[in-house]
């Protein structure tokens, strides 16, 4: 019993964020943002899933590297908070990315019980960006409803009136994010083997 309590305390202690974790996650966020600078151009292009297709690769690759180094619950949420502090100036609805990070982390904690497995990081990285699709879809509908032009968002987004195409694009986004996450995992594994990426 005592041993169990000690283990739990130790686990809690090791899951606490240290300064080096915060610094690395912040640098990874800066990297994601630099490579995601096309966001202001994409937000107004009326194509279903265009933001996610344009940013999916970098928004999965770099966060996975962050999670693979830090390996603590909350790492993805931290990155999402840092990212949203910038996105607020570019496209406020994308602040909902925090919510997506919470959901993605929830799923990972439920199925993998933490970030010990590399695939847990890949799963979180794969879910993170695609989850913004339904949220943005809801946002546009709500926003157009405010504007008095009900459901125009749906018809405006090319493909969204065609359910098949919307589903296809969603799958393409998931596939892209999966590829990005796997690349992130491969880089991290190689650098871990070389002793560069230490926890």
């Amino acid at each position: 019993m005592e041993e169990k309590t000690t283990n739990k305390t130790e686990e809690k202690k090791s899951n606490k964020f240290k300064i080096k974790d915060i610094v690395f996650l912040a640098i990874i966020t800066a990297c994601t943002l630099v490579t995601g600078a096309v966001m202001p151009l994409l937000v107004n292009v009326p194509l279903f899933g265009i933001i996610q297709l344009g940013l999916g690769l970098q928004f999965s690759l770099f966060p996975v590297i962050g999670m693979m180094k830090v390996r603590k619950p909350g790492a993805l949420i931290f990155m999402a908070v840092f990212i949203s502090l910038f996105l607020v100036f570019m496209f406020p609805p994308m602040v909902m990315i925090i919510l997506c990070a919470v959901v993605a982390e929830g799923v990972v904690l439920l199925f993998f019980r933490g970030y010990k497995s590399d695939w847990a990081c890949v799963t979180a990285g794969t879910l993170y960006m695609p989850l913004t699709i339904p949220l943005l879809y809801l946002y546009y509908n709500a926003f157009y409803t405010v504007n008095g032009e009900e459901k125009q968002a749906v018809s405006m987004f090319i493909g969204s009136s065609n359910v098949g195409m919307a589903v296809g694009i969603s799958f393409a986004v998931i596939a892209l994010c999966f590829v990005g996450s796997v690349i992130g995992m491969l880089i991290s594994r190689e650098l871990r083997k070389a002793g560069v990426l230490k926890k």
Partner: peptide, 9 residues
């Protein structure tokens, strides 16, 4: 943690 992260990012 948030202020440091923001400053660095």
């Amino acid at each position: 943690s948030v202020t440091l992260g923001m400053l660095i990012a």
